[in-house]
Write a protein that binds this DNA or RNA. Structure first.
Lengths: 193, 193
DNA sequence: AGGGTGACTGCACAAGCTGCAATCACTACT
DNA sequence: AGTAGTGATTGCAGCTTGTGCAGTCACCCT
């Protein structure tokens, strides 16, 4: 008989998502989460740097996937297209078949500004990492950051639509649409100075 | 003789900026800030929702300025141009003649992830507000958000250059350059499918 | 059998943050 | 002048987050 039940991290993440959903992030204490997971507060902080981090277990995996796809992409792609392709592949692999779970997490995030702050922070780190990956493919740093940032803006639009209740299209398609809209919005129409 | 010295908020902001610069954000306690300002911790929290907020006094003013300029802009401008013009005007009015103060604050922010998180949050709120202002001018919501987001990405690039030690150009010019680069980066070159 | 590893725990404590009640100069009204 | 109300500030008690440190003990390796 093992000394401890396995998968402590998973249990903490599951307990946190449940409790945040039931009573909200602020009204849930770390001690409560740990108790529901059959652990102690101290153990929670052994696994997560702070209370919010428990909701961001996937983001590291997501980032790795995206960076790998950028590095693996066709060399002839424009920087923006390279990022968009990578985001699409990552979305297919990590999001498309877990719509319900992603939606639950999204609902919790949407209800709490502190959690949104953390999400923005993760996105900013990801944007910088994408820019660095483009740079490694020969893109100059400024263009790399602009392409990364533009792709992330389109991604936000696409994700927001993807979470609407009756949306059936794949995130990848929505992203493609959003990028097309962005191209239209940003481009200078001919005939103006 | 008045019961309290005036300008409690200003004194707290000044004391905080000094202390954060001297010993860093994390190693400065709220009690210390309040003490240097001749007040108490409790009073600090009467004026600021949390410890970080003391560094973001200008952001509300900045946002108002930007939104006003968007609303006041020429109706024939493209959405992106309307935002860029407004950001340029706001930069001229609020940043250009306080380079030193802005740089000190920027140095403090750059040294601390928690503060950067808050800054990202402010930028996200600003982006949404800009999108709403564009929407009020007749722009559809998706285009509005894309234009707002694109402008903010360009703004980030421009601001980053503006804070380099030997940069002499105005933020407005750097922003204009960044937007041009963004247009190039995002646009589909002719002759590709 | 014995020693090392590593996940988990308990305890003490700093610091952020909040609710509540109290103080008291200033202001306005009578 | 007297009276009442306003509002910035304060003290205090308390909860929660987060950390440092030392201890336990099943498991693994030799």
């Amino acid at each position: 008989m093992p000394r401890w039940k396995p998968d402590a991290v998973d249990r903490l993440q599951a307990a946190a998502l449940e409790l945040f959903g039931e009573q909200g992030f602020e009204r849930t204490t770390v001690a409560e989460i740990a108790q529901r997971a059959g652990l102690t507060q101290r153990t929670f902080f052994n696994h997560f740097a702070d209370k919010r981090e428990v909701l961001f277990g996937l983001s590291s995996e997501l980032q790795q996937e995206i960076l790998r796809e950028i590095a693996a992409g066709d060399d002839t792609l424009l920087p923006l297209d390279a990022v968009v392709r990578a985001l699409g592949v990552a979305a297919d692999r990590l999001f498309e078949d877990r719509r319900a779970a992603v939606a639950r997490r999204h609902a919790v995030l949407a209800a709490n500004p502190e959690l949104q702050e953390r999400e923005l922070s993760k996105n900013a780190v990801l944007t910088e990492a994408i820019a660095a990956a483009l740079n490694a493919r020969g893109c100059d740093p400024e263009t790399a950051f602009l392409a990364a940032g533009a792709a992330m803006v389109a991604q936000q639009v696409a994700f927001q639509k993807w979470t609407l209740p009756d949306e059936k299209r794949a995130l990848r398609e929505l992203l493609s649409d959003a990028v097309n809209s962005l191209r239209t919005t940003v481009s200078q129409p001919a005939g103006r100075s």
